[in-house]
Amino acid sequence: NLAIPWEDTKAFLSSFEQVAKACRWPKEEWVARLLPALSGEAEQAFRSLEAGDREDYGKVKVAILRADALKMEAQRQHFRQFCCQEVEDPRGIYAQLQELCSRWLKPERRSKEQILELLVLEQFLASLPQDLQVWIQAGGPDSCSQAPPRVPSGRWGGV
């Protein structure tokens, strides 16, 4: 079972960086060496950058991870906002919900613990004021433990 490189963006980029360091590639070459592997959303994220930023691996990585986080958020919203107007085929609706949930949580590549973390993170974020949610989401956490330990003082009252 051959894994698709961009199926787990963070893991793929981490592996790429380990190889780049092990091979002692100069950091200026990393983008050029990553380019042949770009596809789908990762390639679109790269193309959305200004020409000068396309040579900066750090900026390329941030753009790719941001695109990945936006895709996951869109999948979560599709699942959470699903609504059927007419119930003609309950099994079909159930199957559609299962598909939407699988696209979001990806149970074929995430452990039970990782899925639980995503659900807890979702509820954690939902319980916070909107501006604090946005601030934490900007960091792209995959779990509550990856959320910032402290918020900037004075912005969110008693939080």
Rank of each mutant, 00 (worst) to 15 (best):
S39V: 02
V31K: 12
F16G: 12
L49K: 09
F16Q: 12
L34Q: 04
K21P: 03
R33Q: 06
Q44V: 01
W30E: 02
E41L: 12
K10M: 05
K10F: 01
T9L: 08
L49D: 11
S39F: 00
A11M: 08
W30M: 05
F46Q: 09
E43C: 09
A22T: 06
P36I: 02
P26C: 09
K21L: 12
E17A: 14
W30T: 05
A37Q: 11
F16V: 05
W30L: 04
E43Q: 13
F46T: 04
E50G: 12
Q44A: 15
S39N: 13
S14Y: 07
K27M: 03
E50R: 15
L38A: 09
L13D: 05
F46N: 06
L35K: 15
V19T: 06
R24E: 11
V19K: 12
E41N: 14
F46V: 05
P36D: 06
A42D: 04
R24S: 11
L13Y: 01
R33A: 02
E43Y: 01
Q44E: 15
A45T: 06
P26V: 05
A20Q: 05
F16W: 09
P26K: 15
L35N: 07
F46W: 06
A20I: 02
K27H: 11
L49G: 07
P36R: 11
A11V: 05
L34F: 01
C23K: 14
T9G: 10
L13V: 04
A22K: 13
